[in-house]
Design a binder for these strands. Structure first.
Length: 479
RNA sequence: CGGGGCGUAGCUCAGUUUGGCAGAGCGCUCGGUUUGGGACCGAGAGGCCGCCAGUUCAAGUCUGGCCGCCCCGACCA
């Protein structure tokens, strides 16, 4: 615990983030470089995300399974782009049981290879398709530069791996999952996203098509919040995943994979957080409402606690995630700041005046200070809090959407473009050539984020080379 | 992997220039007074000064080596 104020968000956004993650007890640095410990409060947040996604995946016919952490190194060499993309990031196990291993093993950076290997054993007939499996777990990528939640050597995620009979079915699966990701982001995380296709240079190693949802952080940098890939027959050929179709002809499967990681926690922090600390959307917040009792004398204490206990029981019975902060070693003022830093959406203050008046003080986290404070009767408090939580949830999305839209521009000249992407996002025509993309990255540090699916029915001139372009794309600096 | 910074109490750091008893604030424990926006007083506990070697009567401080972490750039969920 600390009594010091948090660093201001505008003063040093990166340092604000680092301190906030530590002080809100979401995570801590592990003894191994680049690794993090997700603390109970952070894990509770992650669990609320996973619970929603897990239910969505099951609703759409997916099943969960677990594949091994260790994968033979040779597996990675079977798909050319895949090995080129991942070999710099592999952690390799060379010894086991005191002996040098005959075949080196990698700590999985992603599981397409080992799952492909298994799928080739399990899939024989068109009747085995589609195969829709999700793995929940962690993976390891040897990152050079790390940051808690956003990029750590080990991170937590789900990876969906599906195999289909046709390209149409596989691409439909890719899109269906991306829609789930979008819905999750909007409705649960209150983060607006742009759905689209990645450029070739940003594509997942080994994928035919990579799609993503892209979110704007408070510092206007872009964060890829989820991805869904279509592989075509690439991995099926590498791992010999074949099936006999209805005409008794052997065919390669079409596969997909997709993921959302614990990075989403970082997005939550960077989209909604303010100078007071975290601001968690009610639907994901581990604690939705905290009760802070206030009293001086013993008589006041027993009267206040009786009301506080009653409020706590009523909210809990209504399935609101509620905590009664009965710590006796810190002052109410300290608790206010403490829970604000942890992003609890609603605070209920109950003191002697409230006992006398049959009221409570309600404070909403998304509107700091007096503005967000109101005094409401104890009767119907459950309904009042429920409405308030809903209102905060939608307000957060509204605010984040307005903020994002205010920082997306459509420059028409390259000079304008350069100014825009120094801070904000640019939505511009692009000829689709990698050379233009690379030059822009070199000159501005902005990269293509995604090519939205909904394209205007026209064409234009490439923002860089001026040649005809028929797609518009978002450029931004990214995490 | 390049550039920069830093390793001293749980945390933030002073002390290193000029070698001479290991320090402060916060946090923690106990007691008391407090409590509607980060309370106060008093008494305590707490140290491999990152690691290894060297110089010296004496090293947190000087020399050499090693390790680790953070920040900034190229690669990435």
């Amino acid at each position: 615990m600390s009594t010091k104020a948090l660093l201001s968000r505008s003063e040093d956004f990166s340092e604000w983030y680092n301190q906030l993650v530590i002080r809100s007890e979401l995570a801590d640095y592990a003894p191994v470089r680049g690794c993090m410990v997700v603390r109970p409060y952070g894990w509770a947040l992650w669990e609320n995300m996973t619970a929603y996604l897990d239910a969505e995946f099951k609703r759409t016919g997916h099943v969960n399974a677990a594949f091994p952490t260790l994968i033979p190194l040779s597996f990675f060499e079977k798909e050319k782009e895949h090995v080129e993309g991942f070999s710099p990031q592999l952690a390799v196990v060379t010894h086991g049981g005191g002996e040098e291993l005959e075949e080196k093993l990698v700590v999985r950076p992603t599981s397409e290879t080992v799952i492909g290997y298994m799928y080739s054993k399990w899939i024989n007939s068109w009747r085995d398709l589609p195969l829709l499996i999700v793995q929940w777990g962690s993976v390891m990528r040897w990152e050079l530069r790390t940051k808690l939640f956003l990029r750590t050597a080990e991170f937590y995620w789900h990876e969906g791996h599906t195999a289909h009979a046709t390209a149409e079915e596989a691409t439909a699966e890719m899109r269906r999952i991306l829609d789930i990701y979008e819905k999750f982001s909007l409705e649960e995380a209150a983060i607006p996203v742009i759905k689209g296709r990645k450029s070739d240079s940003e594509r997942f190693p080994g994928a035919r098509i990579t799609t993503s949802i892209e979110a704007m952080m408070w510092d206007k940098r872009a964060l890829q919040a989820g991805t869904s890939h279509y592989f075509g027959p690439n991995f099926a050929k590498a791992f010999d995943i074949q099936f006999l179709d209805k005409n008794n002809v052997r065919q390669y499967c079409e596969t997909t994979s997709w993921a959302i990681s614990s990075r989403m926690i970082g997005a939550l922090i960077m989209v909604h957080g303010d100078d007071q600390g975290l601001v968690l959307p009610p639907r994901l917040a581990p604690i939705q409402t905290v009760i802070v009792p206030i009293f001086k004398s013993d008589a006041e204490q027993s009267a206040v606690m009786e009301v506080a206990d009653g409020v706590f029981a009523a909210l809990q019975a209504a399935n609101i995630r509620v905590k009664l902060d009965d710590r006796d070693n810190v002052s109410p003022g300290f608790k206010f700041n403490d829970w604000e830093m942890r992003g609890v959406p609603v605070r209920i203050e109950i003191g002697p005046k409230d006992v006398a008046k049959g009221s409570v003080a309600l404070a909403r986290r998304d509107r700091p200070g007096r503005e967000g404070k109101s005094f409401v009767p104890q009767t119907d408090l459950v309904a009042t809090v429920g409405r308030l939580l809903d209102d905060i949830q939608s307000s957060l999305l509204q605010r984040a959407t307005a903020y994002r839209d205010a920082h997306i521009h459509e420059p028409t000249t390259y000079e304008e473009f350069r100014k825009v992407v120094a801070d904000d996002w640019a939505f511009v025509w692009w000829c689709g050539r990698a050379e233009c993309e690379a030059s822009i990255k070199e000159e501005t540090r902005a990269t293509t984020r995604c090519i939205p699916f909904d394209q205007p029915q026209q064409s234009g001139d490439c923002i860089y080379c001026g040649q005809p372009a028929n797609e518009r794309v978002y450029f931004a600096r990214s995490y």
